[in-house]
Every structure is written in structure tokens, then in C-alpha cells.
Design a binder for these strands. Structure first.
Lengths: 193, 193
DNA sequence: GGCTGCATGACACCAAGTGACATCACTTCA
DNA sequence: TGAAGTGATGTCACTTGGTGTCATGCAGCC
């Protein structure tokens, strides 16, 4: 019918973000999003399983990127170092997406449903990292803890990154957060008993 | 119009569980649930915010119960002991609900949406416990860790409890899980570095 | 009796999501 | 060159979750 247009998924995501930012998540309808993208509601659902998912398309990419980074870590690295080996690639992945991430974070922050979905994504990510560590021969407990810690560090750093107007390096923020975590944990360890 | 019937919420929950068990969660419609309870779809949504919520009505009760148990802990108890002080009351709370819990667990296990919701509930619960600990003067880090650990112990023990056909004591299972956690953590601590 | 408050029913409505089929552009191959 | 195939999209009808609104019946109360 109408001429073919490239990157339908991308156009849908862009339209969605814009509309969510303009009118709020709940107030915008999937049909509106599709219309702004020059497509149809039906087509929207061919690219995204549900309305929320349009904001979480990056999750898979993040996962792959992190895993790839971990694969590149030396065989004998300790678990936390393996996890941290993903920080660099992740930083690169998001390097040019600061404006998008900022907008997105604001939208998610205002809707409980979206926060639910984000929580799930982080949870799944943790599971994936844990599994990857386990396949490297890391013990179950250590893998679980390192994965938890890694995702927590990413989450904190990413939050700080999106809250800044001027885009700093996400990688630096992740390194900082990891340092903080280390000092907190060791401090607790000394103070306990 | 029709004669007044008591415990509408309870009847809805009962009808829902039955139907979910018979036909699956997705395959049963809110209208069906309401009809079996002798009510209307509209009335269902007056008692439960959404279809999933009918399976999570106990969350608030659990939360209150746990907090009450923690309140009863001695002023100078260490954080983990405070959290564990809720185990007794929780065990009592669920004492006569084993069949229900068993059915419910089976249903939740088969539907991703319901698992999402359960994850959120646990997450919220963690936050509440953490806050309660903080109000007692526990440091933020310790509160976060103790809350996480407590909820994890509850989750594991509850899973084991529901998987048993004969209802054992939930309290005993929680105590066991806590012991396991302790040994795992100390073992890791010694084995590390 | 009449008033008030509460739980519910009845009804219309919106938006998310899906299934089935048509259509258009583009490719391939005889 | 043209028929057949393929992939992305449109069209349309439909189900279901969820809500707003108003009517109705039952209770207690003065």
C-alpha cells in the first residue's frame, strides 16, 4: 500500500517516547503511537509484545553486551572482576543514548507498572549473569552474590547517569559505584560481630 | 435486589482459585469468577484492583504480621534476630491455609504475569522490613541486608512448605532455611580471599 | 413513614491485545 | 516478461480487562 519505510521498531519507540513525555504514559494510546510512527496499532504489537515493552527494547541488547564483556575477561579472574568486565562495553553501548535514557527514566519514574517491568528486567538480568558465571565454574553462592552486586552497581550508576543533564561517562560512574560498594561491604564486615 | 451475602471478597477469591485450578489463569475470565461467586464483574473490581490481585490478597496480612512480630523483639536484638522474630507469627498466620497456599503456588508457577506480581510483592515486602529496621536505629546497609536475607529465607521456606503434601510447620522450615543461609554465608566468608 | 448510607447491579464505554485475511512491494526463476 | 513466492503492513472484527455513572434494594435510625 503505502511505500515501505525502514526501521519500523525504531520509529515506534521514538514516537512512543515522545508521546509519553508529552502526555504521560497512561494518557497515550497505542493507536496514537502507531499513528505518529505512520503505522497501525496492529503493527505496533508485531514489534512489541505489549505497550510497556516499547520502553524496554534495550534490555536484550544490554544483556548481550554485558555477556560479551564478561566473555572477554581472563579465565582466572575473580567473579566480581568478571562481572565488572562488562562495564566498559556497556558504557560504550549507551555512550550516545543519554538524551533517550534521560527521557525514558523520567517516564518510568512516574508509572508503577513501568517500574514493575523494570524490576523484572533487572531480575532476569541478574539470573543471566549468575548463569554465565556458573558456566565459568564459579560456585553457586559466589555467582549469585556477584551477579546481584553487579546489577545493583549498574542500576545505581545508571540512575546517577540519567539524572545528570550533561552526559558524563557511564563507565566511570559504574566504577565509582563499585568502589563504594566495596568500601561499604568491607566497612560492614569490620563493624559487624 | 438479591439478598445480602457476607464476605464477598472471600467468595471471589475462592471462586477464582477454583476456576484457575480447573481451567488455568488465562483461560478464566473475570466475569466467570464473579458469576461463580454470585456477583458481578463490576463488583470484582471493587474488591481487587486487577485480575492478578485476587491471588495476592494475603500480602498485606503477611506484611502486618511480620511487622508485629518484629515489634515484639527485644530492643537490643541484632537485625537478623529482629527479622526472624516475625517467623513465629507468620507460621501461625499460615497454619490453616496449607491447601490454599498449595493450589495458589501451582497456579502462580504456570503464569509469568503472576510471577511478576509475586516478585514485586516480595520486593515491596523487603522495602517495608528494611524501613522498619531503620526506624529501630539499624544502619541502612545492615537493614537492607537483613531485610533481603529475611525475605529470601521466607521465600525459600514458603516454597518448600507449599511443595509438601502434608503440612509441616512453616516456622520450622523458616528456621531451617535461616540456618542454611547462615552456614552458607560463613562458609563463603572463610573460603573467600 | 421517611431519611441516609452502603453494597451491589446494570449498562455503556475505552483501550489493550489477538486472529484471520487482504494487499502491496519486491525478489526469483522459468 | 510474467507467474509465483515472500515479507511487511493494513483492515476488520472480536475478546477481555478495567472504569464511570447511575439506579436499586436493603439496612438502620430518627
Amino acid at each position: 500500500m503505502s511505500r515501505w519505510k525502514p526501521d519500523a521498531a525504531g520509529r515506534l519507540a521514538k514516537a512512543a517516547i515522545e508521546l509519553f513525555a508529552e502526555q504521560g504514559y497512561e494518557a497515550t494510546t497505542v493507536a496514537e503511537i502507531a499513528e505518529r510512527a505512520g503505522l497501525t496499532k496492529r503493527t505496533f504489537f508485531r514489534y512489541y509484545a505489549d505497550k510497556r515493552e516499547v520502553l524496554f527494547g534495550g534490555a536484550q541488547e544490554l544483556e548481550n553486551c554485558w555477556l560479551a564483556g564478561m566473555d572477554a575477561a581472563p579465565e582466572d579472574a575473580d567473579p566480581m572482576a568478571v562481572v565488572a568486565a562488562g562495564f566498559g562495553p556497556i558504557s560504550d553501548l549507551f555512550a550516545d543514548r543519554h538524551p533517550f535514557a534521560r527521557l525514558r527514566a523520567g517516564i518510568v519514574a512516574e508509572n508503577p507498572d513501568l517500574q514493575e517491568r523494570e524490576l523484572i528486567k533487572l531480575h532476569r538480568l541478574t539470573g543471566v549473569l549468575q548463569h554465565a558465571l556458573a558456566k565459568r565454574g564459579v560456585s553457586d553462592h559466589a555467582a549469585a552474590l556477584a551477579a546481584q552486586a553487579g546489577v545493583a552497581v549498574f542500576h545505581v550508576a545508571f540512575g546517577r547517569w540519567t539524572r545528570r543533564e550533561a552526559p558524563t561517562s557511564l563507565g566511570a560512574l559504574m566504577d565509582d559505584s563499585l568502589d563504594e560498594l566495596r568500601s561499604v561491604v568491607t566497612a560492614t564486615a569490620t563493624a559487624t560481630t
